[in-house]
Design a protein around this nucleic acid. Structure first.
Lengths: 320, 320
DNA sequence: TTGGCTCTGGCAACCGTTTGCAAGGAGGAC
DNA sequence: GTCCTCCTTGCAAACGGTTGCCAGAGCCAA
């Protein structure tokens, strides 16, 4: 039924090993023979069987990509870029979703461990210790997480937070609410750390919050009540949920409260008010993470991507 | 390094075939032995090698999922649901993105053909003939595409369009613009077909359009100029882009023009004006498509999912 | 002519599992 | 006690490639 290396070999009167070499070590076969083989293979529609190849070589040419939540608009561009990059290198990528559950995350990594050549851990929620342990079983690259000794692609969340807070300060806001994300989030910690170092601000911390609109919706009453006039949210979804909640309570954004998000996802760019947010280079991160994983040299390489504040309509002058 | 079936066999003094059977045909092995094997396997951390298994059985326990654009918020919930469902049946899923390019789509299907047990073709753009031909090489299930003889999960776009147009008509709109999607889109055809049968409406067709915000942005001038007071857009992204463009031209939505989208994606639910739209059960579709693919009986089964109009803020009374 | 070198391609073992076949043992019916 | 079954397990041949090793051919220099 399916055409194998044997059929190709028979078709042009050579041994299977010659066919094999034509594909995996072309320089070892005579150009004339090689062309005959190539022609026959093309003719028969031969495609090497990846499972068989994986069995002997130990390389599957598959990658695993694990994210907390595919439905969070932050991830799709990252996934898309990673997948495209991998495809260009003849790799396929398994995408999996942990539903923000560290246990699922752990199980997923274990499942992937021996079946892929490497995994991309995007915003993992597991502990450092656990990740280090799991990474012993499979080459891993972190995205938005920093663990000593492990390769990672980071986005400069600290800078983003500083820019955001400076922007708020510049508009006259002093009392500012900081909505953190889920437990275990590196991004959330970075934001908090950066914020804590900003002088002259009166910071209020709320969290942990679900990194979704419902998370934002849920804290809206607290935020409205705390007297803050500016808010820095864990991500755009939280920011949008918050605005939703505030608006429902007749608290105008940005009239009474200014809100800044993180990620620059599509929903924030549409509708009204358009979100002021910190742009995160998700696609670039996906691309570079794949590269990092595949080149494997530069073991502990860490790439730091730039972030930028995009001012839109959800922030305005403080009117105290 | 990695622990194989052999190690487990040695560890409890049985033959490899017994270990194999413990996992793939438990009823064929004595409960006592089975337990010893299970214990040893667990102890050593044994995980069957999928590549090896695939080689002998011909089943990879992998699925392919091909979508036009991962970054279109319509797809992630579908992908997420499909992936979760597959995982529950011990399948992994390769996600791939065609970037709306039929050639990439074809190549992707060919590449997957022999490496997966089946593919999900979500809103494919290829011709019927081509899809039928490719489907000979690999079990396929269509999502949002109807081809005779092939299993499919459809969403009732016709009903959605009718509801939407009736809603507009009920608000007094008579002259209505219909923004179609990309060429090759079944959904787009269904919409048009349903619309064409609605009596008493003055329909204007615009298209094909890119199924993105830019697509909507781009037709905004034409829509504003054509005198329509109601619009049915190919999807929410187009609708949101259109609103964006109209607003920029000082055409109020829904004040002067009412807009209805399709999909009920997140961005439409946030911001202002919130989109009136036809809700599409994307997650259910992903789940059912996987089931359809895996049960494989009921060869040409077609599942028809219901759609519903969700009235929000982008539609209002016609004021002529 | 001979020895040695380089190219090329065949041979066969191996990767980790599955599975048809057969053998051995236990147990039941007679 | 014998025969027949059923249950359990071992044996070995696949599955489709890859790769180390070896041999023959062709070439060159001495």
């Amino acid at each position: 039924m399916t055409v194998t290396i044997k059929d190709v070999a028979r078709a042009c009167g050579v041994h299977v090993s010659t066919v094999s070499r034509t594909f995996s070590a072309p320089h070892l076969v005579n150009p004339a023979t090689r062309n005959r083989v190539l022609a026959a293979a093309d003719d028969l529609g031969y495609r090497p069987n990846r499972a068989a190849r994986a069995l002997t070589t130990g390389r599957t040419f598959n990658l695993g990509l694990i994210v907390a939540d595919i439905a969070n608009p932050f991830f799709p561009p990252l996934i898309k870029a990673a997948q495209a990059q991998a495809r260009g290198r003849d790799y396929h990528v398994f995408v999996a979703d942990t539903d923000e559950d560290p246990r699922v995350e752990e199980e997923l990594i274990r499942t992937f461990a021996k079946q892929v050549d490497g995994v991309l851990l995007c915003s993992p929620r597991l502990s450092n210790r656990m990740i280090e342990r799991l990474a012993e079983d499979v080459p891993s690259v972190l995205v938005n997480r920093r663990i000593k000794g492990m390769p990672a692609v980071l986005m400069d969340v600290g800078k983003g937070a500083r820019l955001a807070l400076e922007h708020l300060a510049g508009l006259g806001h002093r009392r500012i609410a900081l909505l953190s994300g889920p437990p275990g989030s590196w991004t959330s910690n970075e934001m908090q750390a950066a914020a804590a170092e900003m002088p002259g601000l009166d910071l209020l911390f709320f969290g942990p919050n679900q990194p979704t609109e419902s998370g934002g919706l849920a804290v809206a009453p607290d935020v409205a009540a705390c007297g803050a006039t500016g808010v820095l949210a864990y991500n755009d979804l939280v920011a949008l949920g918050l605005i939703e909640g505030l608006t429902a309570m007749d608290v105008d954004v940005p009239g009474r409260i200014s809100v800044i998000g993180f990620d620059d996802i599509l929903p924030g760019r549409l509708g009204r008010p358009k979100l002021t947010t910190v742009a995160m280079p998700a696609a670039a991160a996906g691309r570079m993470a794949v590269d990092l994983l595949l080149q494997s040299e530069g073991e502990g390489a860490v790439i730091n991507l730039d972030t930028d504040l995009i001012v839109r309509e959800s922030t305005g002058r403080a009117n105290t």
